[in-house]
Every structure is written in structure tokens, then in C-alpha cells.
Design a protein around this nucleic acid. Structure first.
Lengths: 211, 211
DNA sequence: TTGGTACTAAGGGTTTTCCCCGATCTAAAA
DNA sequence: TTTTAGATCGGGGAAAACCCTTAGTACCAA
């Protein structure tokens, strides 16, 4: 019996190509594909799907929320994230949502096949780049505090508004050194190396909106 | 006679899929594909290629420099950018380099086919999203604000990607002092006081896309 | 009571940003 | 031919960002 796959990705060209690539592989079969996450949820009970290959950044409902809702609806579904980005914000949220694998879009078809087979047999698969970031965060961090604290989120917002550390310290009536400490902690947690990366991360993860 | 296509993209999965999708289309034939820009330049004289479908963001030599060098080597080659991003920095540089078309990776295969046929007949093709941004900038520049030069737009794009002035100077093979001068001029023209303001401005005015 | 987490703070360092200033070269435009 | 705009490069300096380490306090929960 073939492994029954679904592809959820709003990029038509990529989705179309992925379907062709995977159907060429012995033992794999793409039985459903869509650009629309909500439509996927509707079809989930009607089409027999083993593994869903899911993009994260999509308009409307994103891959993280979609994974959560899909697993609530069908707990034995397996989800593999197939994403453009390997940043911490993306993969931690995806893992937390219940994804069993994370493969980058720049992967080869062999790697993707490997991920599918591993997850189908009840295992996990994470691409090398993700594993390295995990290891980095694991070793460089005092165990597991991956989530941002309230104060940190507050400071992210102020940084995104263009305030300097000096200005933030005045606004919050704390020392500039405290602000700098928070800043460093945020960079580490989020996995970026400077303010530009932080802003991009914050916008991507909706910690800050541009409009 | 089929239209002979080449695909240059470092994302294996996407390139593989694109090849399959295009070869399904009547009258199109992918005769060469690679993830390596320099190898493409070597093959350019040996394989008969009408149109190159080129990614922009690639490790090593990027799509912009690659387009310039390919057109120098084979002036009758036609280049269509197939990019993830539709920001001004990307498409202005690509047009300047000599690309005849610009299609997003989230396009449908029908749109890509349309672009290929238009360019093959000596025309241009730019996706709707690009055209709208062009119009947006055209009208906004008519409304009086200082106009940015090509180099300045290029540098805005690199700043938004998180590169320091040092890194930008290395990427563009110019002095760090030159980068700093451009930076100051950009701040003055745009009317912001630091890098955070610039990034917010760039995103708001669609000089850079977050996703 | 002990341990973990969050928030606070500081020292002391390097790197980068940001802001002056002036300057040369080239190509296009007037 | 002269002017102008764009790109290039430099010195010097103040401010801000960034990095690493250590540490006190308060609070909550096991």
C-alpha cells in the first residue's frame, strides 16, 4: 500500500512540482493537494491521508494553526513542515503544534523521501540545518526556556517602534543595562544576531505589525 | 521547434518540480538545469538555450550578477527571474541586469507559461504584484519625495537582509565608507533616523517583503 | 524549604552605527 | 563646455549596539 500524501502550499508552482516529483517515487502517492488550509480541514475526514506536507507561511490560516486543528480533528495524522525558513520561531511553533518533521524547501527529493519514510514509520525527521540550530540553542541556553517572558515581549515591541535602549530604559524606569540584558536574552531565544533580524522575526511571528 | 529552457535554482526540490511541470507543457522543453550559476555560464555556449529561468537568491553567485555575465557572454539569451520575493530591491536590480521577465514562485504554471511565451516572442512579462509595486512607486515619486538611486535601493535591500555595513561593502566590493555614505543619504532622503526606522519604511513602502 | 523563573543590575570590553567634514571621478545633461 | 548627479573613498568622533560574565531580589511551586 502506498503512503498517502497531502500537500498544502499556497505556491501553485511549487505544489504542482512537488506533486509530480513525489508521484514519481515508488510507494508514495499524493492523493490531495490544495492552497487553502480550511479546505484541507474539510477534506481531512473524507480522503485517506497518512502524511500532510505543510507549508508554514500561507495567507489566511497558517501552517502552525492548521497543524493544531488538523491533529485535533484526526490525531493519527502525521504532519511534516516543508518551509522556506529555518528560524527558531518557525520550527519551535511547528513542533509545539505537533509536527513530526521539518524539511526545508531547498532540500533534495531524496531528503524529503527520507523524511516521509521516517515519519511514516513513527519516527521524526528534521533537516540538518534545523538540528544544528536546535543543538545550538540547547547548548547555549539554560535548559528549555524557549518562550518569551512578558517583559521581553514588551521590549520587543518598543525596539520595533524604533526606541533605543536608552529610550526604552527611560520609558520603563529601569537601567539601560537591564534593557541590554533583556535584548541579549531575546536574541538568543529568538535565534537572531541583530536588531534587523529581530524585527523581521517579530513581524513574521506577528509580535509586531507594520501598518 | 520547442522553446529550449534552462532552470537555475539552488532549491533542488523546486527545480526538479519545475522541470517536470514545464516538460508537461506542449512546446516547452527544459534542456538544462543546475543549482550552480558558474556551471551554467560554462554550459551556455554548448547547450542551445532560448530562455533561462533564474532564481535570484542563491549562494555563491546570485541571479543578478549571473544574468549580467550570461548576457555578456550570450546577448540573445532571454532571462526570466523566478523569485520568492517581489520587493523593489530585487526586481529593479534584475531589470537593470537585463531580465525580460519577473515571475514569482507562487505563480501558477499557466502564468509562467504565459511569461515564457511573451518573452520568447520578444516581449516582456512581469507578474501583477510587480506591476502594482512599479505603479505604486511611480505615483509616489511623482508626489514629490526624493528619488532613490539604483545603488541606494540595492543597499536598502541588503540592510534589510541583516547585513552590516562591513558585510555589504564586501558583497559589493566597495569601501565601508562608501556604504556609510549611501546609508546617510538614504536616511536623509527617506526621513528616518536609524536602521529600525529604515526597515519599517522599507516594508511599508514595499521595498522589502518579510516573507 | 528549596529550586526554578523572571526581573533587575553592573563591569568591561569590542563592534557597529551614525554624523560631521571634505574629496575625486565619470557620465549624462544643459 | 560647463554643470550636475551618482558613485566612490577617507578621517575623526560620539553614541549605540552587541557580547560575556556575574549577581541580587522577589515570587511561586514542588
Amino acid at each position: 500500500m502506498d503512503i498517502q500524501l497531502a500537500v498544502i502550499d499556497d505556491h501553485d508552482l511549487f505544489r504542482e512540482g512537488l506533486k509530480l516529483v513525489l508521484n514519481q517515487v515508488e510507494g508514495l502517492h499524493v492523493v490531495y493537494d490544495t492552497s487553502n488550509g480550511l479546505r484541507f480541514l474539510e477534506m481531512l475526514d473524507q480522503v485517506p491521508i497518512d502524511i500532510a506536507l505543510m507549508d508554514i507561511d500561507m495567507p489566511g490560516i497558517n501552517g502552525i494553526e492548521l497543524t493544531e486543528r488538523a491533529l485535533l480533528q484526526k490525531p493519527d495524522l502525521k504532519v511534516i513542515a516543508v518551509s522556506m525558513f529555518s528560524d527558531t520561531g518557525h520550527y519551535t511553533q511547528m513542533i509545539h503544534a505537533g509536527a513530526k518533521g521539518f524539511v526545508l524547501k531547498k532540500a533534495s527529493k531524496f531528503e524529503l523521501e527520507q523524511a516521509i519514510r521516517a515519519v511514516h514509520q513513527g519516527g521524526n525527521y528534521f533537516s540538518q540545518e534545523i538540528l544544528q540550530k536546535m543543538a545550538f540553542h540547547y547548548t547555549n541556553q539554560a535548559a528549555g526556556c524557549d518562550q518569551l517572558t512578558g517583559r521581553e515581549i514588551e521590549i520587543i515591541s518598543l525596539i520595533c517602534q524604533g526606541l533605543t535602549s536608552q529610550e526604552i530604559s527611560e520609558r520603563l524606569h529601569i537601567s539601560i543595562k537591564t534593557v541590554e540584558t533583556h535584548r541579549s536574552n531575546i536574541f538568543q531565544k529568538v535565534g537572531v544576531k541583530n536588531i534587523v533580524g529581530l524585527i523581521m522575526w517579530a513581524i513574521k511571528n506577528q509580535y509586531y505589525s507594520v501598518q
